[in-house]
Each structure stands twice: as C-alpha cells, then as structure tokens.
Write a protein that binds this DNA or RNA. Structure first.
Lengths: 362, 362
DNA sequence: CTGAAAGCGCTTACAG
DNA sequence: CTGAAAGCGCTTACAG
C-alpha cells in the first residue's frame, strides 16, 4: 500500500516503534517531545514517523494527560454579530495558545445551556466560557467548577456563586446614553428590549433575569430619576419580540404624551425602530431621537447615521479566553470580575426634543 | 466528602461498578446503554451512578468506538456574517444529530487552513467541513479522505479531486445581476472584490484562486460579452483591500468613461462603495447603480435600499452538515456537488444609466 | 538513554 | 444475563 493511497488504519506509536526498532516508550518520547532520547534514536524514529505519515491521536494523549487543549463555548446564537465577534476574540486567543474551541448555541434557553455545559464537560474541555441566558438559573454552572475546570462568564453575570466574568459596564452605558438624551431636552425616553419577560411593561422591583438588560434598565432609570423625571419606567418595554418591535415602537411614539427618544437594546431592534419611524413618516432626529446599543458598521451609513453605544466585543471575547487560560496555568489572576468600559459614539440620530403640542400634534 | 463539594476525581465506570457490586463490564453496559442487563442490576447501577454523580468520559468512549461525535469546521472568519450564519446552519444540524462542532478560522490563508485541518484530524473529528481559501492549493484536503473521514466543501470548490461540496450558483447570480444592470441601460459595469490577487486589474485567462470569485467574474463577463460590450474586463477590480475599496470606487466612477454601475462582491464592500459614492456627491441610483452580493438586514434600510443577490447561507451550512452526516452513516448520497440557486432582490439601488457627456461631465 | 509494565476510562469479544 | 480479559493509543513512573 503506497503512502498516496488511503491507509486502512492510521499509524500509531506502536507502528513507529516497530519500524524504528525501539520500544513504544522511546518512540512515544520523541513523537510526544518529552523525556530524553539520543540523537541517533530520535532520527530513526522520526524517519519511521515520516515514512508512515504518523499523526498523533490527540484523544489518546488527553486520556493520559487529563488535558484536552480544548475550550468549550456556549453563546446565545453565533448568528448574532455580537457573539460572532466575541467568538473571534475567543478563537484568536485560544488558537494562539494551542487550544481548539467547541461551540454550542443555547438560543438563550437555560435548558439548552444546561445540556450544552454537560456535553462540553463530558467532552473533557479544559475550560468553559459561557454567556448565561439567565442570571437566576445558574445551578448547572456549578458543575463546571465542581469538575475542577475554570469557568468564565461572558458578557453576563450570574447571581449567587462568584464566577470569573468579563462584562461591559452596561449601567454606565445606559446612564451615558440617557444623559445624552436629557441634555437634548428629552424627558420621555423609551427603552426597548426583546429580552423575554412575563409582562412587557416594567414595574420597579421586577426581576430581569439577564444581567445586561437589568443593568441597562437600572442605568436608564437612575439617570431619569436624577433628572427628576416622574415615573420614567412608563416608557420601558420588555419582551418586544412578542408583539413585534414595530408595534411597540408605533405605540411608544403615538402614546399621549409620546416618547420623544428611544434607546434600543441592540442593533437589530434599532434597525426595526429605524424603519418603523420612517414608515410612520417620523423624521430622525427631528421628531424622534434614537440611540442603539452596539456599533455594527451599517449604523454609520444610514441617513442619519446612528448614535450608538459601542462595546469592545472582540476584546470581551479575547479577555474571557485569556482569563480561562490563566486559570488553567494557575497564574495568579488579579480580579474575578473584569468590567470593560463602553463609549458613546455621537453621530446623527439624536436631536433636540420636539415640543409637546398635545394629543393632536406631538 | 458530600456530593455538593468539589470531587477530587470524577467517578468512573469502575467506581460505579464497585458501589453497585457488579463488574465493570456490567456497569458499563447500563451506563453506556448497550448490551443486555437485568432490571435489578440496572437499577443498582443507576442508583450508584446517581449517588456518585457519574458522567461519562466522551474521550474514553471515542477511543474505543473510533467515533468522536465531533465535526470540524474551517471557515475564513467567523466574524464575517456569511460564515456566522453558515455556522449556525452547521451547528443546528450537528447538534440535532448529537454532534459537537469544533471551529477554526483560517483567515483565508492556506497555510492556516492546512494547520487547522491537521489539528482537527488529530482531534479525531468524524468529519470535516471546510471553506477552502484557495481552489488551487488543496493537497492538504486529501489527508482528510486519506484518513477515511468525510470532507464537505462549503461555499467553494476545489480543483482536481472531486470532493463533496455545497455551493451557490455564483455564475448565474452574476449573470442575473449584470443583466439587471444591462436592462437598465448600463454598459460600463464594474465588479469589485477584495480577493487577493497579484494584479488588481483583470486579464482574460487570469487564474482566480477562489472559486466563488472566479465564477462571479465569469458570469459578469459572460453577460457583458453576450450584450456586445467591448473589453468589459476593463472595469473589474481585484484585491481592492490593498489600495482601499474607497479609492478603487473613486477611480472607477471618475474614469473616462466612468463606470455607471458597480457590483460589489460582498456586503462589506458594498457598504464602502455606498459611503464613498455619497461622499463624492454621487446620487444612488441616479448617478451610479449598485448591486451587492449577500443580503444582510441593513441593506434594506439604507436610502435607497440596496438591490442585492441573496444567498441561502443558512441552508448552505445546514446542507453541508447534513451531507457530512449522511456520509458518516454511509447512506447513499445522490450527488457530490450540491448547488443552491440565488435570488436577485430588487430594491432601490439600480436605476437607468446616466448618459455619458464626455470628460467634463459624466 | 532505553525498555517493560501499568494505567487513563471506556468498549468489545469471549466464556460461562 | 454477567464477568474476566484484552485493547483503543497514548503517557507515566520505575528499573536498569
């Protein structure tokens, strides 16, 4: 059987040892690059390996070493640009360190997330990075640390246990966005999120299970309260996918009195708000102002370009991977919770608040 | 040590066997769900497993069965929405079938792709899905089939060997886009791609290493030739990242005679063309028409919304995974090359070709 | 420096 | 139905 043709079976250490006339241990030493081997023997083994097109079986190696050089990642949806970019950050850092990454989508469902964690653990990943769908239901995450493997939370925190986490300062971001709007005279400021919730309206004290959303709402209300706006929660809308972001948008801007500004919790929501406002004949930013979370390229090319809250998404992913790697190498890690700052990018979708002229007008 | 506390060592089949008072073989039979076991013994084993919080070691299982239930995926860049969406398709199909997926980015560099394939093979993936960076340098792909593992090419073909592939009919797509432009009176039609190439200009007979790009150029030229346009390759621009898509765009529309329409090989290029035209004071579609490959959501909200070539990207990924799975189950697979059709989505960026009024005007 | 043996955690024949 | 043994392809002490 010539080397060009499909081999019946891949060559193993034993095969190399036989051909090189050494013991399996010796062959393994040169192939695995550990221990001491004489020059002459090494050459013989290497020649045999070359001849038989030897490739190591990483699984067998993992069985012995207890390390798979693999990192598991659980995100909501890799199709979501946020996670795609974060994944790139994770991948780059992992690859550079010789780690492969196994990816599973949770679709933001805790049950799926739990199953994913189990699969990944069974596959002996060395560490896990997860963007928890809920900050409340996180018992399954304990199984990771219980298995003695590093866990890093991506973008979202978890209640109870204190895990390593790499997040963004969503509260400050929301405060900054809201203040920018307040500065322009807005007082009826809406916040739209598609995060699932029993009631689409928000009442103080409501438990928001996703930490990013909870923080943003806190930030919006904090800024509004500080500005003396009364009952600012009136314009907060949760679970907007249920009735449609377009419908929710329409109601907000036709409310009495209407919201004069909208903060969209992600760029997809912003896109629908944008088109809905346009189809309603409302001008941006003259009639309604808009600020979006996230800064995908397209937000800079719309007319007007959108004012956005830019998050260091790639860095978030990279930092999560770095943290996991540090834990694996037992390096001392300074802090458990790494929080990135965000940046308000002023473009053209925020303008002076229009005067309220009663029910008939705006 | 109570079950709530970190276990020193995870329970194994041997541990369960000891506690349940059966042999390892018997414990393994019930835990691995194979072979025959009596009701009574099964219960005892299950109870022991429960008590010790037993979790199977997928690696050990793979060692024996020769199947890892893992699929390797090599794409150019997961941050690219095209691959993010395709990855979602792959993931969904793989997960549903009980497979995990390991992802590696090649950055469209063949060397990195080659290394990725090696790593994945070493990790004993059952099958491989790769979007080859080059159709020309594909020798490393042979190692996959040589290892007896299914290989499915995603989005791009490879020269020589005939591998399974799931692609899109790029030639027809380019023909359709070009004909739409011709129908509107355009004859100086440009095509811009960032695909790397020694010469940014295109000469008939040039070898384009990426099959998608080669097909698109073929399609554009075919339609233009059929329409009797002379030397239509004049407006084709390769490797546009080198000098900048904005610069390339500016030159094309200020050429004498200028291009009156541009086909952008992906949506990122389209975005830059869009902003460049605007900053040049050129109106879309009155002065210049634009058609983009790919249909991300934002292309529908620009002013004007873009006319695009929509590719069934998710389906492409899903089909690739399905094909890999079929090969693994040795089901008869009808054809080796699955080609998806594309759809021209007419929106607002194509208009009548402006009259050419000589060097001073347009 | 080199080798024989045991072991990682499972599965797979082979007996009984 | 159940068990003792061998084996998957490596690594890891332990001798020599």
């Amino acid at each position: 059987m010539s080397p060009q043709h499909p081999a019946r079976r891949a060559a193993t250490v034993a095969d190399i040892a036989r051909v090189a006339n050494v013991s399996k241990a010796t062959a393994a030493r040169v192939l695995g690059e550990y221990g001491q081997v004489s020059e002459a023997v090494r050459d013989r083994v290497l020649a045999a390996a070359e001849q038989l097109a030897y490739r190591p079986n990483a699984l067998a190696k993992s069985m012995n070493t207890g390390r798979s050089n693999t990192i598991g990642v659980v995100v909501g949806d890799i199709e979501n640009p946020f996670f795609a970019v974060a994944m790139r950050g994770i991948s780059d850092v992992a690859s550079a360190a010789g780690y492969s990454v196994i990816l599973i989508n949770s679709d933001e469902m805790v049950d799926a997330e739990e199953a994913a964690v189990e699969v990944l653990l069974d596959n002996q990943v060395d560490a896990l990075i997860v963007a928890p769908a809920s900050s409340a239901r996180v018992e399954h995450l304990a199984s990771v640390t219980r298995a003695g493997r590093p866990l890093v939370l991506l973008d979202r925190r978890a209640n109870g246990e204190s895990y390593d986490s790499v997040t963004v300062d969503n509260r400050s971001a929301a405060v900054a966005a809201t203040e920018e709007l307040l500065r322009n005279g807005h007082r009826r400021i809406a916040f739209i999120t598609t995060h699932e919730h029993p009631d689409p309206a928000y009442t103080r004290g409501d438990t928001i299970t996703m930490s990013t959303i909870a923080d943003r709402i806190d930030g919006v209300l904090q800024a509004l309260d500080a500005a003396g706006v009364e009952a600012p929660e009136r314009y907060i809308r949760l679970d907007a996918r249920r009735r449609g972001v377009d419908t929710v948008t329409r109601e907000l801007v036709h409310d009495d009195p209407p919201a004069t500004a909208i903060i969209a919790s992600d760029s997809l929501i912003a896109m629908t708000v944008f088109t809905t406002l346009r189809s309603e004949g409302l001008r941006l930013p003259d009639d309604v102002s808009l600020i979006a979370f996230d800064n995908p390229d397209w937000t800079a090319v719309t007319a007007p370009p959108l004012t956005v809250v830019e998050q260091p998404i790639y860095d978030l992913g990279a930092a999560a991977a770095r943290r996991a790697l540090q834990r694996l190498s037992r390096q001392p890690v300074a802090e458990a919770a790494q929080v990135f700052g965000v940046r308000l990018v002023n473009r053209g979708s925020v303008g002076e608040a229009p005067a309220y002229v009663g029910e008939t007008g705006r």
